[in-house]
Design a protein around this nucleic acid. Structure first.
Lengths: 205, 205
DNA sequence: TCAATATGGATAGTGACTCTATCCGCTATG
DNA sequence: CATAGCGGATAGAGTCACTATCCATATTGA
């Protein structure tokens, strides 16, 4: 276990904690108080840290995501997996705002030819976010939401294209999770870089 | 204060807490133990909740962001403001990985004509994220990072375009913050919708 | 062989964070 | 003039992600 610890950079006590929490499968027993850990444990451990540190998931979230990876029954909806563990902000929303948000979302859906289900978790969080815009009286900032949707679609296409190029189901499932969680961090950072540059260009600073 | 509470939906005790933490300016005193709160307090309070709930910022982060809004000395770098409070994952990174990540970032920078400063916080977090990809041996998922960058640039242009259309400096600064924090949540949700749709289309589910 | 060290497992404790509850002296109001 | 509510201070609650200690057993080095 000390070996596993030094290979992954995670303290022994923390590894024990993850084992207790079921984030890490127990090692192969060699004797009543001895276990062997292999390469897949190191990998899993790194995965856990990535989800926690970069993805910002909670322990429970990581558990869900890993469970979803493990009992992958299908390749479809594989991109929905990572959403299980994602922190979903749920501001309370009155019916009027919700209706307004839904109509906006449906408009976007029509433009893009998307099939929007109103009971979806993603739609739910989208409604929440939109309502916060409304709450702050900054619906003016939603003026170009169509452009957002177009770019989001482009990004989704890139994501899917990359995944479908992967060889094994295993790598696809894992890639979907990593692509969702780390991909968010990655794209967000790139967006910030873009801001800096566009801002410099525009204001000729 | 009870009024402020019911207008914003935030418990009185919590408002007191925010006051203590400096997230909310004290009300205008009408007597030694009486204060009046106005519309701007309600607004500020909603802003605080938005940053906490949707943006996922910490109290300290919110304080920083609000402080940045308040002493807005310039309109330039206004989009960098919100980054102050954002949770920045900082995985430790060895020199080799860092060098690899930096070269990748610079390549992207050249393609897009971006001026990349290696000591920037954004670049820093980008390096961290890229190194996690490497750590997980999934650099294959970075195959289309150029496309990511292109889309990120497009998004940044949309953001900037929207901001520059705003009338007052005040609304621009606030819009930048909201656009960064809520905009992330918004775009992420749209990306997920795009995933669902693209996945359905592709796998004809 | 046998003492020193390490192991896995259980349990309890730590520190940070975000509230929340209670108390207090004062004051505006009916 | 009683009472209800105010702002302010302080302490407590609950969660979360670890971390430290203890223990009986097992491996290892001299």
């Amino acid at each position: 276990m000390a070996e596993l610890s030094s290979a992954s950079g995670v303290p022994v006590a923390t590894i024990k904690y993850y084992l207790r929490e079921g984030l890490l499968p127990p090692g192969e027993r060699t004797s009543p108080n001895q276990a062997r850990y292999g390469e897949e444990h190191v990998r899993r451990l790194k995965m856990v840290r990535a989800l926690l540190d970069v993805g910002g998931l909670s322990i429970a979230g990581v558990r869900e995501v890993l469970a979803a990876i493990d009992d992958r029954t299908s390749t479809h909806s594989v991109l929905g997996i990572a959403q299980h563990g994602l922190p979903a902000p749920k501001p309370r929303v009155d019916d009027e705002s919700r209706a307004w948000a839904m109509s906006l979302i449906e408009k976007i859906g029509e433009e893009r030819g998307w099939d929007v289900k109103s009971d979806d978790v993603v739609v739910e969080s989208l409604v929440g976010t939109l309502c916060v815009y409304a709450e702050l009286n900054r619906t003016d900032l939603l003026a170009r939401i169509s452009d957002y949707a177009e770019l989001a679609e482009g990004l989704a296409e890139v994501d899917l294209g990359m995944l479908s190029a992967l060889p094994t189901t295993e790598s696809i499932v894992e890639g979907a999770v990593i692509g969702t969680v780390l991909g968010d961090a990655l794209f967000t950072a790139l967006r910030r870089l873009g801001h800096q540059n566009a801002s410099a260009r525009r204001f000729r600073r």
